[in-house]
Design a protein around this nucleic acid. Sequence first.
DNA 1: CGGCATCCATTTTGATACTG
DNA 2: CAGTATCAAAATGGATGCCG
Lengths: 227, 227
Amino acid sequence: MDQRSYNQFCATARTLDLVGERWTLLLIRELLTGPKRFGELQNCLRGLGTGLLAARLKHLEREGLIERGTLPPPARTPAYALTAAGRDLEPAILALARWGMTWAMGQPRDDESFEPGWVMLGLKACFDPRAAQRLHAVYEFRIDDDAFYVRIDAGAIEVVHGPAQHPDAVITTTEELFREIAAGRATLGEAFTDGTASATGKPETIRRLAGLFRVPPARARTAAPTP
Amino acid sequence: MDQRSYNQFCATARTLDLVGERWTLLLIRELLTGPKRFGELQNCLRGLGTGLLAARLKHLEREGLIERGTLPPPARTPAYALTAAGRDLEPAILALARWGMTWAMGQPRDDESFEPGWVMLGLKACFDPRAAQRLHAVYEFRIDDDAFYVRIDAGAIEVVHGPAQHPDAVITTTEELFREIAAGRATLGEAFTDGTASATGKPETIRRLAGLFRVPPARARTAAPTP
DNA sequence: CGGCATCCATTTTGATACTG
DNA sequence: CAGTATCAAAATGGATGCCG
């Protein structure tokens, strides 16, 4: 599982030697929004068996991409978190996500699973720092029984799985809307208008939210003439 | 080979469904610097058998990421080129490369193969558009028997495998130097000084070259405290 | 629940031989 | 060369069962 290397002295190949195996990048994707426990990971990653999950976690820990630790004091249960090296994979994963938004999303198939966190990460991938100049705000998203918070700080964005401490605005909506957003059939702005999402908090903070993200238009993957 | 899907309605997962299999991203990496033939691909990708290469090419063609065509008129031999969708994977591949430069390069192992093109792509990944303001120039790199050209156009960079038509400057050097650059033990600037690389052409164009790239410093992948 | 071990059916892969 | 055919060796997935 890690003795199979491409044997190329190339930055891309070396990276794929470490994280190119099946499930690995998706596992890291899950940890991008905060530490998760074994069972949580298994829930998000249907089809990944316990054995393979344990092997992948061990491999990533040995390679210094994740750390096994325990959640904040009250809960003494083990959890996995990204190290600095692991966190630094975020730009690559968001780049893959942007590609997927453009070229591969279309309609959900009915055998596909879905997590609101994937859309939260998608929003992050579409975040436009220039649209967030001078904005400092914490948003809390409540999607059915899931919660995320988004902290915007002068062109930087942070997305974390879990409720916020002192949100400036709270957005309440459904997983169904998030599915529609992922399919490109809805936007946050429209959702506020047609009532599929509601918000409480500082009006100005709410007003700026929808403009922070530039969703790339979907395109079809048909052979294109070389320019 | 394509019936194995993650079955997630997620942009990242959908992308990996298409290009996440072994060898696929490296294959696309090879095509980022221009069309290549079956045999050329096989040469760069030691360990990838002909059967699997053929299968991958067929899959990528069917999915609209590459096109099978023939090289420019004189040679009537088949070659594979990226479509617009395939080319659009470049940001993701360069992001993976940047990660590898930072966290995974170190020294070459002696069982690793090496291609100068991988370093050319590494340079592209380190290109700093702001350092190239107002610069319009075509550089030709001659690395032993390989050639690449690099066109800089006001903050944009293009890297193509093959000789240039009318280069403003020609850089001549060895594969050995490129290996050292990949290992972070040499830079273009030093190479001009110590004579391991030589350049002919417009002095001002040559002078600006080394400053166009910001190579990220290498870091060790040891468990880091979460900030 | 967290996590590892084991067994087994199915895929993927790697390596090589072979054909136009 | 470009690509198919073939076969052995891994990797995967699913279903357990076990132990703290």
